[in-house]
Computed example of a mutant assay.
Amino acid sequence: MEQEDKLKTAGIAMGSDFKVQTLGGAEETTKTFADMNTVQSIVKEWNAMSKKAAYLTIDQYGPPNEATESRLIWYNNGPWKRTIVYRDEIPHDFPQPHTDVIENYINYTVPIEKFSDLAKFDGSVMIERTRGEVSSRCDMEAANILALNLMNDIVIDKLNVEEARKKYCEVTSAFMMNRSAPYAEKLQFPVSNDQKYDTDVVMITDEMVKQAKEKVNEIINDNMNNGRLH
């Protein structure tokens, strides 16, 4: 990438950041639904666990909003900001051998000092710091509900990592034996519908930003004078 393109890109990026933080609208969701004939033709080629997760999610929430060869996506379904069922399986042995095929997302801000604890708790709990999201990926939605409830317990210091892992095993066993398992049935904490980004801090000095803007303007003016701006 040439310097001119780099500076143009930087200018566009700064303008986009200002627009999003001022006016909002960074993320849009698909409100239409995928054609079920298309969905079925895609899913029929998937492996058993992915196919099972896909049809269970369709039974509960209806057709996905988007469907590609490798995933189905729902937006704002039930308690979730987004749900993705994947064709491709990821092997995972905690708390028992299974494959991760469904991922559920919520808006949630995790304090930075808790990142390490959550990584130790469950490698399939993902934190999106900038986006202000947390997701859990497992073999079924109930397992994701359980993981997120325990994630919250760790964040609020109700449980430490080892206690949370132990409770995960206990609740999973109860759920599979059809005993009462509230932690696997419903989120036990309020979830916001409002997006809250962690935009971090500007570390490039104001003078450097000013120079970049001036350079971009110079390039634009030169191109206009030479008839090269499209």
Results as ranks from 00 to 15, higher is better:
110 V>Q: 01
112 I>G: 08
113 E>T: 02
114 K>L: 02
116 S>L: 06
117 D>L: 03
118 L>I: 07
118 L>W: 03
120 K>H: 03
120 K>I: 01
120 K>Q: 11
121 F>E: 02
121 F>W: 07
121 F>A: 03
122 D>L: 03
123 G>N: 12
126 M>S: 07
126 M>V: 01
127 I>P: 00
128 E>V: 01
132 G>F: 10
132 G>L: 10
132 G>Q: 08
136 S>C: 15
136 S>D: 11
136 S>P: 10
139 D>G: 05
139 D>V: 01
140 M>E: 15
141 E>T: 11
141 E>V: 15
141 E>G: 05
141 E>K: 03
142 A>S: 15
143 A>M: 15
144 N>G: 08
146 L>H: 03
147 A>H: 13
149 N>C: 07
150 L>S: 08
150 L>N: 09
151 M>I: 00
152 N>S: 04
152 N>K: 12
152 N>C: 07
153 D>I: 01
154 I>F: 14
154 I>W: 14
155 V>H: 04
156 I>F: 07
156 I>P: 02
156 I>A: 03
156 I>G: 04
157 D>L: 10
157 D>H: 06
158 K>F: 02
159 L>M: 12
160 N>A: 08
161 V>D: 05
162 E>I: 05
162 E>N: 13
163 E>I: 10
163 E>H: 02
163 E>A: 14
163 E>D: 11
164 A>W: 08
165 R>N: 09
165 R>E: 13
166 K>F: 12
167 K>R: 15
167 K>C: 08
168 Y>V: 03
169 C>Y: 07
169 C>W: 06
169 C>N: 10
169 C>F: 07
170 E>I: 15
170 E>M: 11
170 E>R: 01
171 V>W: 06
175 F>M: 09
175 F>C: 01
175 F>Y: 15
175 F>I: 00
176 M>V: 00
178 N>Q: 07
178 N>K: 14
